[in-house]
């Protein structure tokens, strides 16, 4: 696979340099490791997000006003090191504690947990909320075992707004858990992405094959089938999602149609058209819709649908303004 890189060892540090060159008035790099933080430090509970690279603009693109305060950046598809998490924690802590908010993957949990032990020794309080929105990755009764995918975006948005309000670490963590509980996603893979430097793609799919529920690193999904039309795809996915989330008439949701890398906006809007149609038919109210490629896996083909069921509290935080170079909410 052709990739625009210099050397495999330097892909992440060079990406971070490039981010600073572009947005250096907004972000600042931490001293030693690949961490980025808001240039203007805020006096509030710090929100630390992070994970492996290769999913851009996740995660760094969600450090912003009304969003997260810092990001720990790992190598491609590999969790960030404890040192990185610790350094970012120190950079964003204002004495009110830091919330670790990231997708539920074994590597991330091990590294963030070790970082939490280290920060505790330094007298900084942390709490952790794992994002588990991928409904295809484990049965509903094991929601806590599910992986985190594009639903990250909604949870980051809500939590950023809640922490901006000056709430305590415990309260921000409660709202984070609630936002996660109210968020579900389902994806479909059309073609694989590839790790820079690796010759083989992360998985193989036949020319006319697709896989429902496949994870963003190629984790196997729930069903492999023949390619179908946009509407047929959307119907299958939405059906699964609505059932899992037990959505009914009069429920109010936010919608995110997320491209996985190489699926175009043209295609994503065709999907969104069908999503709106079905939700309208079912009497589920759409509060807001976002169509974008936020949570990608390099040049992977496919998309995911995320719904977040709102209540009064979540709606209030969703409506609050937010800004980053990759996300705007007015």
């Amino acid at each position: 696979m052709k990739k625009v890189v210099n050397s495999i060892e330097s892909v992440i540090s060079e990406m971070v340099e490039g981010v600073i060159d572009a947005y250096g008035d907004f972000y600042k790099k931490t001293e030693t490791n690949n961490g980025l933080v808001l240039k203007q430090k805020k006096d509030k509970v710090g929100i630390l997000i992070g994970g492996g690279s290769g999913h851009e603009p996740l995660f760094f693109g969600f450090v912003g006003e009304g969003l997260a305060d810092g990001v720990a950046i790992g190598n491609v598809f590999a969790a960030p090191t404890p040192d990185t998490v610790l350094e970012v924690t120190k950079a964003i802590d204002s004495g009110k504690g830091v919330l670790y908010l990231y997708g539920n993957y074994a590597g991330d949990v091990l590294n963030f947990d070790m970082a939490a032990e280290l920060t505790e020794m330094e007298g900084i309080k942390t709490k952790t909320v794992l994002i588990t929105d991928d409904v295809a990755s484990a049965p509903k009764k094991s929601k806590h075992e599910r992986r985190g995918i594009a639903g990250n975006v909604f949870v980051f948005k809500i939590v950023g707004a809640a922490s901006d309000e000056g709430l305590s670490l415990e309260e921000v963590a409660r709202i984070a858990s609630k936002a996660n509980d109210h968020t579900g996603s389902i994806g479909v893979a059309l073609s694989p992405g590839s790790i820079p430097g690796e010759e083989k793609p992360t998985f193989t799919l036949g020319e006319d094959e697709i896989e429902f529920g496949m994870g963003i690193h190629g984790e196997p999904g729930v069903k492999r089938t023949q390619m179908m039309s946009a509407d047929e795809l959307t119907d299958e996915m939405l059906d699964l999602l609505i059932n899992d989330m037990e959505l009914t008439e009069k429920d109010e949701v936010c919608v995110l149609i997320n491209g996985l890398g190489s699926t175009t906006l043209l295609e994503l809007f065709i999907v969104n058209r069908r999503v709106s149609e079905i939700l309208n038919q079912k009497g589920i109210e759409i509060f807001d819709t976002d169509v974008n490629s936020y949570c990608t896996t390099q040049e992977m083909g496919g998309f995911s649908i995320t719904l977040m069921k709102l209540d009064k509290e979540l709606r209030k935080y969703y409506e609050a303004p937010a800004y980053s170079p990759y996300y705007v909410k007015k």
Partner: peptide, 12 residues
Amino acid sequence: MISSMGGASGII
């Protein structure tokens, strides 16, 4: 290893 690898293997 812990400070350079990341991922689950780095810790383990």
